[in-house]
Design a binder for these strands. Sequence first.
DNA 1: GTCAACTGTTTTGTATACAAGAATTGGATT
DNA 2: AATCCAATTCTTGTATACAAAACAGTTGAC
Lengths: 217, 217
Amino acid sequence: MAENIVQRLRDEIENGIVTNQYSPGERLDEMQLARHFGVSRTPVREALMQLSAIGLIEIRARRGAVVIDPAPHRIYEMFEVMAELEAMAGSLAARRHTDTDRAELLAAHAKCERSANAEDSDTYYYDNETFHYAVYTASHSSFLIEQCAALHRRLRPYRRLQLRVRNRMKTSFSEHAAIVDAILSGEAESARSLLRQHIAVQGDRFSDLVATLARQR
Amino acid sequence: MAENIVQRLRDEIENGIVTNQYSPGERLDEMQLARHFGVSRTPVREALMQLSAIGLIEIRARRGAVVIDPAPHRIYEMFEVMAELEAMAGSLAARRHTDTDRAELLAAHAKCERSANAEDSDTYYYDNETFHYAVYTASHSSFLIEQCAALHRRLRPYRRLQLRVRNRMKTSFSEHAAIVDAILSGEAESARSLLRQHIAVQGDRFSDLVATLARQR
DNA sequence: GTCAACTGTTTTGTATACAAGAATTGGATT
DNA sequence: AATCCAATTCTTGTATACAAAACAGTTGAC
């Protein structure tokens, strides 16, 4: 028998949610999922319970599980918190980064440069993710890393949308440059505010987000 | 039949953990819990799955659930993140608080004054909690409020320990005064740094924490 | 006396069974 | 034709059953 079915189901369903395979508001039928994964309802339910605890789905009593469909306003709030957590990670990274962190950060940055120049937004999306994880890692706070990773993951679908906005990729990359600079030269407060600015969905970017969300539905 | 057994179990077990009724490292036996609550193993398991997703317990394959026993270093990291989240809440509160928020904040602060003067650390513990929730609420960011509440709850046992440190109650209260002042006068950055200082476990306070933890075990 | 292997027990992981509430469909009435 | 009500069907929530792995205790060999 498989090593850990519940864990696998949890990851697969979570992935299905953040990749929009299961779209917001969609009902998740236990039997259907069970059949799809070739298991009984029990492990499916246990996986759903975990996702409910994380806040990815909502389980209404005797009415099943549905994928959470956050209002734009709530997505904004999530980015706001993400901005603060990343800012914190950047600040710590500036003070604590090792030679290895420096290398990782520069490598991730170089990757972003290539994909940004190639105007390849799909690749940039992944390279950008690598870059941000490099910042988290350099913070050397395991708890913060986990929190950042969890929230980052949850915001994945919306980050992707944002890259579609005109010139966002180039702007993003040049912001990265300043961030790398601040971190590597140990300017904690500078890294903090640059990252906060980089993540936050401010001004026009919020209306862009709302518009794209509306279009998508 | 009860409205929602799993939810109830989740809350009861979680409460048992944060109140140290189930101590760190302790094994949580499914059958035992089931008997204790007068239900079958199924809802117990589902509740445990949720707690595992939140990070309060760890479920090792075929070896059952144990209450997470975080290293002092990790507790420090958790406080570090808590400090940043509360700082953010304070900053937002300074900019967004309503008249109702102002009243709640002042009321909570007055309560703290009474229990601090009475040197009643048990009551102060609860009043302090009310005070911090008032700050969260005043931020008017539902997601941030939830995040703060979740982490606050998780850190409950350690906060309680900290209050036992000599004079901590009085110091805490006078810090609150400055925080209230900053928030109500709209000084966002001041509120931010005051709250960060207030929460962070810096310098001696970390050794105090470690010592108290060691003594407790 | 110590260590290892075997056996019996306990406990977890998954499947299935059953009960109860919600959704749905069909019919009757207006 | 539309609406309301009842009966049926479907889905969820909980319990139980069963299989497999971990654990413990005992016995036997060196």
